[in-house]
Design a protein around this nucleic acid. Structure first.
Lengths: 130, 130
DNA sequence: CGTCGAGCTTACGTTAACGTAAAGCACTCT
DNA sequence: AGAGTGCTTTACGTTAACGTAAGCTCGACG
């Protein structure tokens, strides 16, 4: 048994992405599938990277950020500095997300207040039931 | 006293936007300043609309959405239906924002967990103090 | 008279992450 | 042979909300 390779379609089904997406990530040098003739074949490593990429996206990382983080690991020497950098990138992102959440909460509160005032206006404008 | 008009620069200073932004909003038919020769002059109504626009932006409304909402009011007949539509648009947006906040919170939690695991890895990799 | 500053118009540039043709190869089935 | 399927490459299109640059006008000021 080789390395348990998958075609592009199998990948799409497995990860719920389009072929375009996989080719795009490849063009952006985030994954490096091998070829059989001209067809792409994805191995376990490719799947691992893709999984990390998709997870990163959920966290709001841009693709370019993910590329850099992945490349840090890929030097074979996942030494302290690399790990530290990744860790710090993640902590920074976490802080960003928390700020974003706080702003969102403020906006929600503000809008909620507006709506309450609006509700009063509504009843004021409402004509007596027919 | 007329209607207490302002130049584009005064508007920019007052609302902390660029001239480009005001001209852009005008091109998109969100505000309609009058002209003195070729210079724009903004009256109280323009300022009111701009204020609503910027508030809407904070709430995450797109400009096109704001245009539609503003136009509802502008028919002179701010009747029940118009108010209702605006009210519902706002409530919908509020729901969206809450969903967005919830997703963000999930992502934050997930990332936090990852980071805790990562912290363990870090200490494992750390070599004894020099 | 020259030019300076403010404002104007027109119009292309930016950014991210793909979507969407268009056209061609490689196999397989019938 | 023809048709169909799956994959490929190349390359332009999309979206929002402006940024930015070029070139013109107009009134004021020294």
């Amino acid at each position: 048994m080789e390395d348990d390779l998958m075609t592009i379609r199998q990948m799409c089904d497995a990860f719920d992405v389009t072929p375009r997406t996989l080719r795009f990530y490849e063009a952006k040098e985030l994954i490096f599938p091998r070829r059989n003739g001209q067809k792409r074949l994805y191995d376990r490593r490719d799947r691992g990277r893709l999984k990390l990429i998709l997870r990163g996206k959920r966290f709001g990382f841009a693709l370019e950020e993910m590329r850099q983080l992945l490349n840090l690991y890929d030097r074979g020497d996942a030494q302290e500095e690399q790990l530290t950098r990744t860790y710090e990138a993640a902590r920074e992102r976490l802080a960003q997300m928390e700020r974003q959440r706080d702003e969102l909460n403020e906006a929600i509160e503000e809008l909620r207040e507006q709506l309450e005032q609006g509700a009063e206006m509504m009843t004021a404008f409402r004509r007596p039931a027919a």
